[in-house]
């Protein structure tokens, strides 16, 4: 059990800054998710915590102890990799016990811990199999088991579910959540999938181009995204952005006031989540249906506004529209997100 502290961490490869300046405190027992598009630096940050990459500047502490000068194995961490990284020439038992055996842990204790981990993960029947004889999900379980066996202070997950198919991914996601509840360890989880981030995280760190865009609980990020990037990244389908005008703290689209914002002025961007758009009789968004996607319980309406901007609305599955049909959508004031020209959120 331990806290994890990053202080002014910077990383550059030659002239390229990969992590600009990262400071973060992860509380004991917290599951924190690093999320962002590929190449945003989230994996590099995780690898620095693990000790697989060196820091260019800054400090990393685990449990109050500074670790950035220590080799990976002495940091009290365990890591689960996207490609599972199992030793192909060792069976499941060998893989699970390898780190302990190497560290010279007593044989009986190794056995105990390996058995314990295999029970937690339901691997007991597979102990003599080689990795190539396992399915993807089983391999991932072994990889997680290998981490558990080490009884680390901090678990690190590097996109652990990306190589699994969709159904299995949902299943393993729940498993990891249960595991966190059961073990109560501090965990850092890297993913590019915002659904994983939303469902797993106590807190989410959104990365972009080596910089932290926002840190907060999933709902904070959903309700009050700090900028357009976070707003567009969190939530599915992605938030709609519409050009708007602010006059006397009133945010207007096509001459209609949608919400009020004291600090807004001039050209602004209005962010509207598809699930918050509602069907209306007369605007303020009026246009024609370009595509109507029916998913059964729900439906996505793609609408083209007169000035060519696109809007996606998530509607109830009862509705039905055909291409070219005129339609009209509206929104409640509390669901409006207003961003300034630079893309930052404007306070209400």
């Amino acid at each position: 059990m331990a806290t994890l502290e990053l202080k002014g961490v910077k990383k550059s490869f030659g002239a390229v800054n990969v992590i600009h300046d990262m400071t973060l405190e992860v509380r004991d027992g917290e599951l924190i998710v690093f999320v962002g598009p590929s190449g945003c630096g989230k994996s590099t940050m995780l690898r620095m915590i693990a000790g697989l990459e060196t820091l260019t500047q800054g400090q990393i502490s685990i449990g109050g102890k500074r670790v950035d000068h220590l080799p990976p194995t002495d940091r009290g961490i365990a890591m689960v990799f996207q490609s599972y990284a199992l030793y192909p020439h060792k069976d499941v038992r060998g893989n699970l016990g390898f780190a302990l055996k190497h560290a010279g842990v007593d044989k009986k204790e190794i056995e105990e811990r390996v058995n314990n981990a295999s029970e937690i993960l339901g691997l007991s029947d597979l102990m003599t199999r080689k990795p190539r004889e396992l399915s993807g999900g089983q391999r991932q379980r072994v990889a997680i088991g290998r981490a558990i066996v080490r009884e680390p202070d901090v678990f690190l997950f590097d996109e652990p579910l990306s190589n699994l198919d969709a159904a299995l991914r949902v299943h393993m996601r729940v498993e990891i959540l249960k595991l966190h509840q059961r073990l109560g360890n501090t965990m850092v989880y890297v993913t590019h999938d915002q659904v994983e981030a939303m469902t797993l995280a106590d807190r989410i760190v959104v990365f972009k181009d080596g910089q932290v865009e926002q840190v907060g609980t999933p709902l904070e990020l959903y309700r009050k995204p700090a900028n357009k990037f976070v707003a567009g990244f969190i939530g599915s389908p992605a938030m709609n952005f519409v050009n708007a005008n602010a006059v006397d703290s009133a945010v207007m689209v096509a001459g209609t006031k949608l919400c009020s914002s004291k600090s807004a002025a001039g050209e602004v961007t209005l962010g509207v989540r598809p699930e918050h758009l509602i069907l209306t009789e007369d605007g303020p968004f009026s246009g024609v249906v370009s595509v109507f996607e029916h998913l059964g319980g729900e439906a996505f309406l793609h609408m083209t506004l007169p000035d060519g901007q696109l809007l996606v609305a998530k509607l109830d599955g009862e509705n039905s529209f055909s291409t070219g049909q005129p339609c009209s959508l509206g929104i409640r004031p509390e669901h409006c997100h207003v961003f300034n020209k630079e893309g930052y959120r404007i306070a209400e």
Partner: peptide, 29 residues
């Protein structure tokens, strides 16, 4: 070959030499 398996061995505490003999050699078989 994925780099991750070597990183995993590093976390398990293997020296660079042992990574070569215990991880890389079996990998290149």
């Amino acid at each position: 070959v994925s780099r991750e398996i070597k990183d995993s061995a590093r976390i398990d505490g293997l020296s660079e030499y042992r990574i070569f003999f215990e991880v890389v050699i079996p990998l290149v078989r």
